[in-house]
Design a protein around this nucleic acid. Structure first.
Lengths: 350, 350
DNA sequence: TCCCGAAGTTCGATTTAAATG
DNA sequence: GCATTTAAATCGAACTTCGGG
């Protein structure tokens, strides 16, 4: 391991001068070009790499950002992570990713680990979060810039969300404009933050279009710690609904996975999608494009959301560094209707 | 920030004694219980947390393992990461995940970042790796235990792979036993390591079963840096094959994504899956269970593979720490046929 | 000689204060 | 905002050595 002292010896200057030159510190202004050149050459010759740990101990800057994900197996996360990476990488920041499996205990332990490693910022991906996170304490106290994706928190933590209400409205509007009038709904789990605004969007559109919502066509996903459970639950609920012989030509699901479950139940029940029943999802996760029929859905700009969160955290980091005021931002991103194969004009009614 | 000196002051002992007691160092043997208790109490009272960075600077142990992934958007990765996490977390090791987007430049830069941060071990997930990695140099030189998933490298780096040949044999055997005789094949890209052994498995089974392979039914995925491209390419290739009016009742795809592409082309071409044509994939990624029809495929024990790689790296870390010899392991895991809805007994021939 | 505890050095860089031309 | 360079203190913990009872 070659240290700064080795470079000092090689170049004939002191360690202090080497440090000043290589870091281009303010004092480097006073140092003549010849000295600089000799130091640079010595460093290159010895393949000197500064010890990040030693530097961090002294300077407090780790150039890392902690990323806490509630569950990586949720396909929702992947594009978000890409978005984060796309912002952090050019800025030479390293994301440190931890997966809390939706467990409170893991959340606390991982948060500690991240703080112990002096992350300069924190991003939380709360896509499917049931654990109650009153983390405000630790984080705000330490003055660490933080952002959360998929939730809004009071306090100094920035947030990036999709406009759930608008998205749900888009979904229903799409079915309505295709002529569907008898529409079934799979709502989200009660403890999930997205559930309420999405349903509000549904109701708001229904009211404005004078569409009657039949309460017998409303299903609710149960609470679960596993984001992937909504596939199976979507299947079960829809299968049960079919058994009641209730009639409908369209179905709006809480998310893409429950939409897949619903499609499967419909097909098994002899109802063809989209010929006899249209299905709309929410999220636009990767499998939506692959499925047969491919899924019409409401796209969340996941990559952009990740990038936005990362940007505001980096801004916060700069602010802290320059001792400026930390202002939190709360962005609401626009969802987008993606029409694929799972929706069609309403049939006569089956 | 409360330091060890604060605890020393609070307890009335010196920093050295505090360090010895709190780390339960060998010398702690000589220290009376009363002293220990007073120090423990002081530490608790002040909420003392040792500074990981300072400790690391001195002790060289970072309790982190670098995880290099060729592309996180590949659904293949997720269960692997889970497996890694499941081993690292209980051992109090933190994985530091980097995504190289299949780019050589990113690989090099990220590897440097990880080494700079003194990771104690390295795991590479080479699911879809086209960049040439002659990393042996840096890694072996530094004596860092490493493991690679999905590839075999000569040298001291451990590897965990699925038995590709056996897997391909299983796939073909399944179709054969269902009565299929005219079978189409989507082979992998030439630069991917899995391609050759899988094709060898196909040929080996064909030979032993005296099954004729029609070369007009063989398709090859083009080289691409994007793991998700095989969906579209599977679609294109299969659509083109259908245009030739060649006949077949079964199709073996290189991976699940190309199988999805093939299924879509078949359906669009008016060939129903599985009634008129059976399709088998490879990998068993998450969407395989969701699709309609769900995909019969060869499962790679991804989570177990991740866990295995993590275990051998941790073993290596222990070995290095105790100055024992570093032995590399090369594990080959057994694939498993998962029968779902996309395969059926052969029809009369369409 | 045996315990117990403290003083001081080390890890590798950053940074301040000061010395010198 | 002399210009140029450096010795020494610092970051926080770990470890080695040494002295007193």
């Amino acid at each position: 391991m070659v240290t700064i002292r080795d470079v000092a010896k090689e170049s004939g200057f002191s360690a202090a001068t080497v440090s000043i030159v290589l870091n281009n510190a303010p004092l480097a202004h006073y140092i003549p070009a010849t000295t600089k050149a000799r130091i640079q050459k010595a460093a290159k010759k010895l393949h000197y790499r500064p010890n990040v740990i030693a530097r961090l101990l002294r300077s407090k800057r780790s150039h890392t950002v902690g990323v806490i994900v509630s569950d990586v197996t949720d396909p929702f996360c992947i594009p978000v992570l890409r978005g984060i990476d796309n912002v952090l990488y050019p800025a030479s920041y390293l994301p440190i990713l931890v997966d809390i499996h939706n467990q409170r205990e893991r959340f606390e332990r991982h948060l500690e680990m991240l703080l112990d490693r002096h992350v300069e910022g924190l991003i939380m991906v709360a896509n499917w979060l049931f654990v109650d996170i009153n983390l405000l304490g630790d984080i705000e106290k330490r003055n660490i810039p933080a952002a959360i994706i998929g939730r809004e928190l009071k306090g100094s933590i920035s947030s990036v969300m999709v406009d759930n209400e608008a998205g749900a409205r888009l979904a229903l509007e799409h079915l309505y404009s295709l002529g569907h009038r008898r529409i079934a709904f799979i709502r989200g789990p009660t403890t999930l933050a997205d559930t309420v605004p999405r349903w509000r969007g549904i109701q708001s559109f229904a009211r404005s279009a004078k569409l009657r919502i039949d309460s017998r066509l409303i299903m609710d996903l149960p609470n679960s710690l596993d984001p992937n459970s909504s596939f199976e639950n979507g299947y079960r609920l829809t299968a049960a609904l079919l058994k009641t012989r209730a009639r409908f030509t369209g179905l709006t699901a809480f998310d893409d996975l429950s939409a897949f479950g619903a499609m499967r139940a419909l097909e098994k029940g002899g109802v063809r999608v989209p010929q006899e029943c249209s299905v709309v999802g929410f999220d636009d996760v990767a499998p939506s494009m692959l499925s047969l029929p491919s899924l019409t859905t409401i796209r969340q700009p996941l990559q952009a959301m990740g990038a936005s969160a990362a940007s505001s955290v980096l801004e916060g980091v700069d602010a802290v560094f320059e001792k400026r005021l930390l202002v939190s931002s709360h962005r609401k991103m626009l969802p987008e209707l993606v029409v694929r194969e799972s929706t069609r004009p309403a049939p006569r009614l089956f």
